[in-house]
């Protein structure tokens, strides 16, 4: 039988982190779209307390603050897709949402939940990484609310594992408003528009000026225990003219730098091939459309 014997639904952040600090053994419930099936399948064991954080207003909403867009951790994928600040500044997140699970799940799943699940194939992670996102964490180790932030790539440790401390809550994601000339692409490999766990995904972003890419960020999903930066690919692109030779070199760098595994969704060989081919297609698309 489950050890779960307590349910709380705090209504403020302070209260939530206080209770986290006090109770220790807590399972956090956000959208529930992953927690419920994982728990039913026995892959997640409930701790003593289930804390429903959905009643905390501070965790919701999308605002512009100091040159950044701050997205509350509890914001659902559907809310992100519909928000004017996102469509104006971060259109990449709108198209990412369009490939995310299904309508019903987009209505329930939260951005914070997708991040904290830390699945190597988590749909929002690669786009957030190339957008330069950081996560905002809160806790209350003593009398004072303690906040810290961390660049997203550092947050992930392994499948389902993050640097979130036991008494800490992910409160928001911060994304710098992209500069002029910013281009970004996300490719989720799949045979259908959505409701698919990607066999691989690729994000590419940078500033395109005079046919050259700079401030390049590349990330890959589902090729390692966590979403990973494509550092060699970035290097192959940084400051280069985006011509056929650069694209070929970048695609090759991408293929060479990933080390995926084989599983039910694809073989390692095929994943590497797709990383190559799709990186090339993304870059060709960028070159052709800007």
């Amino acid at each position: 039988m489950t050890a779960l014997d307590n349910y709380i639904a705090p209504t403020s952040l302070e209260q939530a982190v206080e209770q986290l600090q006090e109770l220790g053994e807590v399972t956090i419930l956000a959208g529930g779209t992953d927690l419920m099936p994982q728990a039913n399948a026995g892959r997640v064991k409930f701790k003593r307390t289930l804390m429903n954080i959905r009643r905390i207003p501070e965790l919701r909403g999308i605002v512009r603050e100091d040159g950044e867009i701050r997205i509350g951790a509890l914001t659902t994928i559907a809310e992100i897709m519909a928000h004017p600040l996102v469509s104006e500044h971060l259109p990449l997140l709108v198209s990412t949402g369009d490939h995310f699970a299904s309508g019903q799940i987009r209505n329930a799943a939260t951005l914070g939940g997708n991040i904290c699940n830390a699945s190597p194939a988590g749909d929002t992670l690669v786009p957030l990484m190339v957008l330069g996102a950081s996560v905002e964490l809160a806790s209350k180790p003593d009398d004072k609310l303690f906040r810290r932030s961390m660049p997203l790539p550092e947050f992930f440790v392994g499948p389902g594992k993050t640097r979130l401390a036991p008494a800490e809550l992910l409160t928001a994601v911060r994304i710098p408003i992209p500069p002029k000339g910013f281009v970004a692409r996300f490719h989720k490999f799949g045979t259908r528009p959505a409701l698919d766990i990607s066999a691989i995904s690729i994000g590419v972003a940078g500033v395109l000026k005079d046919g050259k890419l700079s401030q390049v960020r590349v990330a890959f999903g589902a090729v390692a225990p966590t979403p990973v930066c494509g550092c060699a690919t970035e290097e192959a692109l940084e400051g280069k003219k985006l011509d056929a030779a650069t694209i070929d070199a970048a695609a090759q760098a991408a293929q060479d730098e990933v080390h995926p595994i084989s599983d039910v969704r694809a073989s390692a060989w095929y994943r590497k091939e797709m990383i190559h081919n799709m990186t090339r297609r993304i870059l060709e698309d960028v070159a052709a459309n800007h």
Partner: peptide
């Protein structure tokens, strides 16, 4: 399916469609 993959359990919560198999009953409060 109990995993949000089939939609047979779709309901509306405050007018928004969800898979009720993924929703904790306590969240209906």
């Amino acid at each position: 399916c109990g995993e949000g993959e089939c939609g047979a359990c779709t309901i509306l919560l405050d007018g928004v469609s969800l898979n009720s198999c993924l929703l904790f009953a306590v969240e209906c409060d």
